[in-house]
Amino acid sequence: MKKSILAAMAAFFLFAMPVAAHPPIQVYVDGQTVSFDQAPVIIDDRTLVPMRAIFKALGSQVTWSEPNQTITSTKGGDTVVLKIGDTGLYKNGQLVYTMAVPAQIINERTLVPIRAIAEAFDADVAWDPIGYVITILSSGSEVEGGYHTDVKADDGTTVLSFKMDLQDSNGSNGTKIKDSLEMEVKSLAKDFINDFENQAKKEYESAKVQGLPFTPYYFVGSYELTRDDSKYVSYYGTSTQYTGGSETIRGCTSHTYSASTGKELTIFDIIDDSEKELHNFFVSSFTALMEERPKSFYSNGKDRLEVYLDEVGFYVIGDGLGFYLPPETIAPNETGIVSFTVKYVV
C-alpha cells in the first residue's frame, strides 16, 4: 500500500538535517570493497585512509621510513613519495600534486589523502556524497558491469576516457534492469565522445607541440544499489567529468524499478501525495537545508528552487526515500549534490 510522504515530515527534521556525523565511508577499488583497520576520516573536505590498505588495493608496494616520516610506493615503473605533514606529492622525482590536506598520523596509523594517491597512479575517482562512497577505477582495470571506452590520438595516446561502473541486482529481473541501464550508459558515452573528442585531440596536439603536460578528458562514475529486495531495485548514480580547464563537473541520476515486474517506477508509483503536495514538501525540505547552511547555497537559492522543483530526483533505501538536486541548481558546483533522506517504511 502506498503512503503519504507528508506523514514523514517530522522524520525529515529529525533525521535529515545536516549534522557533523555522517555514514561510514566506503571505498571500492575496481569493484572490490577495501577494508581498513582505522576508519577513513574527512578533514577539510578531503578523505584520508590508512596507507597500506589503499596502496595494496591499487596494486602497489609501500614502504615507511620512520626517521624521515616518508612514505614510498612503487607500481610498475612509477614511484610515488610523500611525507607526513608535507603537502607535496612526488612521482618519479617530480612534484605532481600539491595536497590541500597532507598525510598524517591518527590513532597511531598513517593516513593518506585517497584522491591524491589514486590519481598519482592514474586511477579515476568518483565520490558519492549521499552514501559516502568512493569508487576508484585503477589504470588498466576492466569494468565488469557498465561500460568503458577510450579515444586515442594518432600516436596512440589516450586523450579521452569514459568509465561507468554498474552494480548488478540479484533479483529475478536483474538482467532486464541491467540491460536498460547499460543502454543508458552507452548513450552517455556516445554523447560525451561526440561532444569532446575533437576538442580533446586538439588540446593534446597543441600541448605536445608546446611541450606542455596534457590531462586526458574523462567521464567516470558508478551506479550503486541503494535497495535490492523483493519489492524494489533502486540505483543511485554519480559521475565526475573533466573536459579541460581547472574544474570538474559532478552529476547524478537515479532509477527505481519494481522487483516483481522490472518496470521503472515514478515517485507517484510509490507514494499517494499529489504533485502539488510533493512540491510543497520539497520547498519546505530544501528551504530547511538552505537556512541551516546558507553559505553553501546561492544567495537566490529559494527563488532558483521554484525553477528546479521538477528536477528533484529520488531513490529508495531500506527504510525510506532519498531526494536530491544536482549541482548548480540551488547551490554552486563546489557544494555538490544537495540531498536529504526521509525515514519511513516503503
Results as ranks from 00 to 15, higher is better:
F196T: 00
T87G: 13
Y242L: 06
E119S: 00
A207F: 06
K343D: 13
G245R: 07
F340A: 06
F219P: 05
T70W: 03
I114A: 01
I317H: 05
S206R: 10
S60D: 11
G221E: 02
F268R: 01
I193T: 12
G156N: 03
D154P: 01
I114K: 02
V112E: 13
T135N: 01
S230P: 03
T215R: 12
E275W: 06
L188M: 14
S254V: 06
T33E: 13
L58R: 00
L265W: 08
K176Y: 11
E203D: 14
L325D: 14
E182M: 05
A11H: 15
S138F: 02
W127T: 00
Q32Y: 10
D78F: 04
A53F: 08
V151N: 12
G313A: 01
I114E: 02
P294V: 08
F286H: 09
D303I: 12
R250G: 03
Q32K: 11
L95Q: 03
Y204L: 04
L14Q: 13
E334S: 14
A20I: 15
S260V: 15
Y204S: 10
P40T: 07
K178N: 05
T158Q: 10
T261I: 14
T329A: 09
M9I: 14
G313S: 04
L181E: 01
L6V: 11
I54G: 06
G145R: 10
T87V: 14
K302W: 07
I25D: 13
T87M: 12
V307Y: 11
I193Q: 05
D273C: 09
D229K: 04
S234D: 13
T261A: 11
P294H: 05
K202P: 14
V185F: 11
K83E: 07
L225F: 08
D78R: 06
S73C: 11
G322W: 09
T157M: 08
Y344F: 10
V220E: 00
D179F: 04
V220K: 00
V34G: 04
L212P: 03
Q69T: 02
V29S: 04
I337N: 03
G262V: 13
V316K: 09
G313Y: 02
E224N: 03
M1S: 08
V283K: 02
P327M: 12
H22P: 02
I106Y: 11
I136H: 00
V49G: 01
G131K: 02
K56H: 13
D30I: 13
D86N: 11
K2E: 15
Q199G: 05
Q104T: 15
V81M: 07
L95V: 12
L166H: 02
S239T: 15
L309G: 14
D154R: 01
F55N: 01
L14C: 12
V312I: 07
I337F: 05
F219I: 03
L278F: 09
S260H: 04
G313M: 07
V125S: 04
Y242I: 00
P40H: 07
T341R: 12
T157F: 08
K176G: 05
G171F: 06
T74K: 15
L309Q: 14
I25R: 05
F12Y: 15
H255P: 07
K343Q: 14
H279C: 02
A123H: 03
G31P: 08
Q210A: 14
T215N: 04
Y236P: 00
M1I: 10
P294A: 03
S206L: 15
S254F: 02
D154G: 01
L181T: 04
G93M: 04
L321C: 04
M99F: 03
